[in-house]
Design a protein around this nucleic acid. Sequence first.
DNA 1: TTCGTATCGTGTAAACTATACACCTTTGTA
DNA 2: TACAAAGGTGTATAGTTTACACGATACGAA
Lengths: 246, 246
Amino acid sequence: MSKISYSIKKKEGALIKDPVSLVKSYPKMHVTADCAIFGFDENELKVLLIRSDLAIYQDLWSLLGDNIADDEDLDAAAYRILRERTGMNDVYLEQVKVFSKPDRHPGGRVLTVAYCTLLNTRHHELMIHDNEIHWHKFSSIEELAFDHKEILDSCYQWLQKRIQEHPLGFNLLPEKFSLRELQNLYEAILGIRMDRRNFRKKFASMKLLIDTGELEDDVPHRPGKLYKFNFEKYEKQKNSWTGIDF
Amino acid sequence: MSKISYSIKKKEGALIKDPVSLVKSYPKMHVTADCAIFGFDENELKVLLIRSDLAIYQDLWSLLGDNIADDEDLDAAAYRILRERTGMNDVYLEQVKVFSKPDRHPGGRVLTVAYCTLLNTRHHELMIHDNEIHWHKFSSIEELAFDHKEILDSCYQWLQKRIQEHPLGFNLLPEKFSLRELQNLYEAILGIRMDRRNFRKKFASMKLLIDTGELEDDVPHRPGKLYKFNFEKYEKQKNSWTGIDF
DNA sequence: TTCGTATCGTGTAAACTATACACCTTTGTA
DNA sequence: TACAAAGGTGTATAGTTTACACGATACGAA
């Protein structure tokens, strides 16, 4: 039984009137948020990494992370990290999992909350000025500092699962995109090939795509129509949403 | 930008040789684990709650929780809480989400990691000796101490979703159970009625039920067959598992 | 012992959904 | 002008899900 277990409080018998001194008697630990920042570019899933500044992880890369400030909500901390590093505010971001192995950080016990972040690299690339930060192909990332490879793999699995339940993929694409780009994205993330006609039918039946009336203009072949994702309509119906299924 | 942001470290230029003093400079906070402990009894979903010992939450109940010890993994902490309160070791338990609002605890900032726990009440009821702890009907829980109602609701939503992807429900049932009990469980958790024949077909097609050859012996009508869940077979195939779908 | 009640156990037809598959069109480039 | 590359579309088949009904069995009460 832990030395600081709940049962100690109960032995006092009477109700506790001073929660502040109670909480002060509890142990504290370091807490960070780490963001697995995914982008999609040249038909490949990319991850934004920073060069580790710890000597023992020399030449290794790590996820972007930071401490949680004393009065800061975790989601706010994750948004702050994104804002500081990419300059962007309107980024899709979701909490994935806490990583808590006592020895996961060489500097002592640090608990970290993993966030999965999806953004469009084109939209964001110009705002990154730190040349220690780069986009890496997800498929060629082999080793990272700390337990960040494990965290990244968890976030990728989370993404694979989540993208089949909700249309998150649009956060990785430009505002206007062709159906081919959309299909390439799904194929890259899920690691499977799909039938083009069936893929189009599936998205057509969701009725969440808006035909912009525009065409691609930078392809060396017949250009496809450009669509926008109907975020508003999706927001309205997502409570009764049951999944996409590929 | 946060006062304790990552970028401060980078200004030093050279690589950091002493991660321990680096980490010591970070802020610390209190961290707990709270368990939403679900049971199933009399065709109802139940939750194990403890009477709050804080005066400001007098007459309110709360989830079972405790601090994380300095050298303790989060999952280990959740198991410890379960072991201390129910006496059980072999309980199904999964991390759900971190709750981090700065003002969620009246005694100061306490970050908590929510765990969803499933157990069979019959198997465990005798081992609970603390009379401040009771099973409550999930459907009649209206207010809890702290933000525990919000946490419980998140865990319930997690359970509803998860039980449609993986056969977790068996953790809430006795070792041997009838198909009617199994269906009652799913109907209670999902809040829907199902066709008995289709429900049976679905589970039959999974081939994860073992016919014990025994019959119910405490029902005032024709007894049903008793089955066991084939945990071993499920463990082997769960990596390639794609879902149940009700 | 018999009857009423509650549940058990089972199969099939219809509706729906997912899959496999091919051809002509459009654009750009050589 | 013809070749290369992808766009855009429809249909038939297989597979899955749903809706639905009846005889059998056990218990309890009269």
